[in-house]
Simulated scan of single mutants.
Amino acid sequence: MSNPDYRFHFHDLKATFGVNLKDFYLERVAKGEMSYSQAFNRLRFKMWHTRLSTTEAYMDFDKNLHEVDDAQDDWNAELGRLKRQALKAEINENP
């Protein structure tokens, strides 16, 4: 890895597997090949979750992504504004 601060943990791999498996199951739900309840229970079993809330977090993962995307867009816009402001100040100081 190029980032010396990155630390890999087994749970990173497990979580990635869980999200991908959830996507697979929800595609099958959308096609009518299984019910949401079946997808939920299969994911819970494969991930060895003892608490329903843990599996619910995986099933609801994508619902919050739009908030992350919106926050990233807002941050990018703010950085662009600050950059333009700094460039304008530099031009005014060094005509």
Rank of each mutant, 00 (worst) to 15 (best):
R28C: 06
L65G: 00
Y6I: 05
A39K: 04
R84C: 09
D69H: 06
L43I: 07
M34Y: 04
R51W: 08
K63S: 07
Y36I: 13
N76L: 15
N76G: 09
L79V: 05
R7L: 14
Q72R: 14
K14A: 14
R51D: 15
S35H: 01
A77P: 00
S53H: 07
A77F: 09
A89Q: 12
I91Y: 13
R28S: 06
S2V: 04
D5E: 14
Q38H: 08
P4F: 05
P95E: 13
D5H: 03
V68G: 02
K31F: 02
F8Q: 10
K22S: 03
Y6R: 08
F61D: 03
A86Q: 05
N76E: 15
L43E: 06
Q85E: 15
M47Y: 08
N20V: 03
T50Y: 10
Y36G: 09
F61V: 02
Y6H: 12
F10R: 08
S37R: 14
H49R: 05
F10L: 11
E33Q: 11
L13C: 12
N92W: 05
D60Y: 06
N3L: 12
Y58T: 03
R28P: 00
E56W: 10
F40I: 02
L52C: 02
D74A: 15
L82A: 04
F17Y: 15
A30V: 06
M34T: 04
N92S: 06
R28Y: 03
F40N: 02
H11G: 01
A39Y: 01
L82P: 04
F40Q: 01
L21K: 01
N20T: 02
D23K: 02
W48S: 09
F45W: 09
E67Q: 13
D74G: 06
A57K: 05
W75P: 00
A39W: 00
A86E: 07
H66N: 08
S2M: 07
K63W: 02
S35F: 03
F8W: 13
M1V: 07
A15I: 10
D23F: 02
V19P: 04
G32K: 07
N3I: 04
Q72T: 11
F40T: 01
K83N: 12
